[in-house]
């Protein structure tokens, strides 16, 4: 503004020279960045793009009995599931499972995440580590753990039976109930991590400000804390949703063959019936489902103003 008027021409020249210098180092930097990207991009192409392209191509082939694949270009693999009410039901069940697990997981993880995010304790790091420690055990092991806990003679049923609350054991496993319980627990660490990182705009000062303006604890929560933690909640929900509908181990092990979702269907088609084109088509459908939900998520976050 007024400074430029009094700025000496020499200084301006120096500035210009600096700019040029910046440009040339910028070019060099860009080249370095590109060079640094190569291993990652190459890895991604080999491990993701190529297999994905191969899978999409595979989905247009024709599967014959006993694992024979006819290389052709057909939409039958798509027409078949899309015109078959059974696959609509499987897809709908998959979607419903993802939503249920996502909601429940967010519900039980939210208090934990909120506590960890707001904690000023010197043990906060340790507490976060404890909260996500279950990730150190594989999902298979934890699923087996749930089978033991939820089984007919498991911890839950024998406790309820011992207390005289039930006569016949509750069916908590080999159905969607078991799968849901297992998945919620297994994905809690992810939800907690996603929420903690999504609570960026939350600060104790905002809650104090609301309090000083007359808001009760409940009003602080509903008017300030909850709206500000929505981006974190949404991210956690999306993550858990995506993990749920793509997971195969838990529905397989805790579902007892009665829980038919896209992932288990793809597994059966791939390893049991050896119909790879059909499995590939189902995988593409699952991917489209991912895409849809991510699009909705982005709409929502923009609305919330994340």
């Amino acid at each position: 503004m007024t400074v430029t008027q009094t700025e000496a021409p020499a200084a301006r020249r120096a500035g210009a020279a600096e700019g040029e210098l910046e440009k040339s180092t910028g070019r060099r930097n860009r080249r370095t960045y590109l060079a640094l990207l190569i291993p990652g991009v190459l890895g991604l192409v080999v491990s993701f793009v190529f297999p994905l392209a191969y899978m999409v191509r595979m989905s247009f082939n024709k599967g014959a009995p006993d694992g024979v694949i006819e290389e052709t270009f057909t939409l039958d693999t798509y027409i078949q599931p899309l015109t078959d009410p059974y696959y609509w039901r499987v897809t709908l069940d998959t979607f419903q499972m993802g939503v249920t697990v996502g909601l429940l997981c967010v519900l039980v993880s939210y208090p934990v995440a909120l506590f960890l995010a707001r904690s000023t304790s010197k043990y906060r790091g340790l507490l976060i580590a404890v909260a996500i420690a279950p990730l150190l055990t594989s999902a298979v092991v934890r699923t087996y753990g749930w089978m033991v806990i939820l089984g007919t003679n498991g911890l839950v049923n024998s406790t309820l039976d011992g207390m005289g609350l039930i006569d016949t054991p509750l069916k908590l496993t080999n159905n969607m109930t078991g799968v849901t319980i297992g998945l919620v627990e297994i994905f809690m660490p992810y939800a907690i991590l996603a929420m903690i990182s999504g609570f960026g705009r939350l600060s104790p000062q905002l809650e104090e400000a609301a309090g000083s303006l007359g808001a009760s604890k409940l009003q602080i929560f509903t008017r300030v804390t909850l709206p500000l933690s929505l981006p974190g909640i949404l991210t956690a929900f999306l993550l858990v949703f995506v993990l749920s509908i793509s997971t195969f181990i838990t529905p397989r092990l805790l579902g007892g063959g009665s829980v038919q979702v896209l992932a288990t269907e793809i597994y059966d088609q791939t390893t049991g019936l050896l119909n790879w084109p059909f499995a590939a088509a189902l995988s593409v459908i699952l991917l489209v489902l991912f895409g849809l939900i991510i699009a909705v998520y982005q709409r929502l976050t923009k609305k919330i103003g994340g």
């Binding site: 000062q205 104090e208 609301a210 000083s212």
Partner: peptide, 20 residues
Amino acid sequence: TPVNKRGMGMVFQSYALFPH
């Protein structure tokens, strides 16, 4: 008396305006 019953007006160092 709890903070929300004191009827005071406070301006914080960071202003603490509600971003949403």
